[in-house]
């Protein structure tokens, strides 16, 4: 590690703090604000998507891939996982008898 850079990892710390803030805001909205269930869902859902995007750029090296092809494969993999896990879970748990 001869090329150890002395630069302070500002972006990482900033991203980390911002992620914590977004998480606590979501918890605060859900626990402390007397809003209806739907509004709470919309707010914390939005915050979650903002945080996911933030982490992609701050930690996941989205902007520093070697070439476009690798980035496309990574994004496709990411979208596939996200769709399967999130959409799949919602579909499975809200249809049929499971909804009742």
């Amino acid at each position: 590690m001869e090329k150890s850079t002395e630069r302070f990892p500002l972006a990482h710390v900033f991203g980390f703090v911002l992620s914590l803030v977004l998480t606590f805001v979501a918890a605060w909205v859900a626990l402390e604000m007397n809003l209806s269930f739907t509004i709470v869902m919309w707010i914390i859902g939005t915050l979650a998507i903002i945080q996911a995007g933030l982490q992609l750029f701050m930690f996941m090296h989205m902007t520093e891939g070697e070439d476009g092809k690798v980035n496309i494969i990574n994004i496709a993999f990411m979208v596939f996982c996200a769709v399967v896990i999130v959409v799949g879970s919602i579909w499975v748990l809200t249809s049929g008898h499971a909804a009742h």
Binding site: C81, G88, G96, H97
Partner: peptide, 19 residues
């Protein structure tokens, strides 16, 4: 392998389409 997990709990009764 990522698209088959519900077959472990068909009897949960997710409905005909899901199963």
């Amino acid at each position: 392998s990522m698209l088959v997990w519900v077959h472990h709990f068909y009897t949960m009764g997710s409905g005909a389409l899901v199963n």
